[in-house]
Simulated scan of single mutants.
Amino acid sequence: MSHTAHIPSHRKPRRGASKVAIRAGVAGGVLSTIAVAGAAGPANAAEPVTETIEMPTLTSGLAGAVAQSADATQRVALNLELGAQENAAAIKAAQAARKARAEAERKAEAQKAEARKKAEATARAKADAAARASRTAERTTLSSASSNSDSGSSTATTPPKATTSAGGSAGALIAFAQAQLGDAYVMGSTGPNAWDCSGLVQAAYRQIGVDLPRVSQDQSTAGTQVSLSNLQPGDILYWGGAGSAYHTAIYIGGGEFIGAQNPSSGVVQKSLDWDPPSGAVRVL
């Protein structure tokens, strides 16, 4: 046996088997202890070695971080909600602006169309009035010239008779119109001794059981429009536009018509060449 066999060794024994125990403090920074014990072989036993390690406290810092994270998340959510509300408000405002602009444009177009319509109506009325005044002046001049010529050869003037071979209804209404030759022209009159143009036409057609509108504008659309080159006795002649005529008369055949012309002429029989009509309608 060696002389050192019973002398305890001062070297730390090798740690063959270790046992670690960890105790973690959960609240208030409780120290964590790690105990490590080592045992040598059975023949070389030594004192167990214990090491204690102080671990940092985790709970307080973790709670603060969680609180900060929750606060940041809440702020982000609030910002997103505010942004969504602002976007919705902007979209709604843009839609309202587009709707208002479209409505304004529609009203402006409607006003322009109405203004154009009124201007066109005014222009037509002026043109019709000018044409009517021109025709009236021409008729007055011709009537005066005819009266002066007739006064030198005769003291009385016999109204010309209508020359037509029309029979039936057309012949009857023409005969009535012929019977009124020489009657006075009075605006608004419907007989029996004074007439205006449409009053005479209406009365003539009433003799054969046909009811016509009272005024020239309506009489010019009371029948089927016919060409002036295809006239028949009894057709209604009109001056001006269809639906806006200012004068009507009755075609009696042979290129002539009978009508209540104006205050200076009264009811006369004239050639179409004397005052060419604008159009004609056929009722019979």
Rank of each mutant, 00 (worst) to 15 (best):
M187S: 10
A222E: 08
V215T: 11
G152K: 15
V201Y: 02
S143A: 14
D183A: 04
G199T: 00
C197T: 01
Q225R: 14
G234P: 04
S143G: 13
G152T: 15
T158I: 11
L181Y: 04
S189M: 03
N193G: 08
D218Y: 09
M187Q: 08
P159S: 03
E138M: 15
G199P: 00
S153V: 10
G167L: 10
P213V: 06
S146M: 15
Q219K: 07
C197L: 01
C197F: 02
A162F: 00
Q180I: 02
G234M: 04
G152W: 12
Q207R: 14
I174R: 10
D211P: 05
Q219M: 08
S154E: 05
T164S: 15
G171S: 12
S220E: 05
G199I: 00
S147W: 13
G191Y: 01
N148G: 15
P213W: 03
S147L: 13
G168N: 11
Q202R: 10
N230L: 05
N148P: 09
G168P: 07
F176M: 09
Q225H: 14
S216H: 04
P233T: 11
A156N: 13
R214A: 13
K161E: 11
Q202W: 08
Q225E: 13
G171A: 13
G171W: 07
A184W: 01
G167C: 09
T164V: 09
T190F: 08
Q202L: 12
S227M: 01
L200C: 05
A177V: 03
A179R: 09
G209D: 10
G152I: 15
V201K: 02
L228D: 01
V186I: 05
G209I: 12
S198Q: 00
L200A: 03
N193L: 08
N230D: 12
A175S: 14
V201W: 03
V226F: 01
G209E: 12
A194R: 00
T141Q: 13
T140E: 13
T157C: 05
D183P: 00
A172E: 14
S153I: 09
T157M: 06
A203D: 04
S169F: 11
L200Q: 02
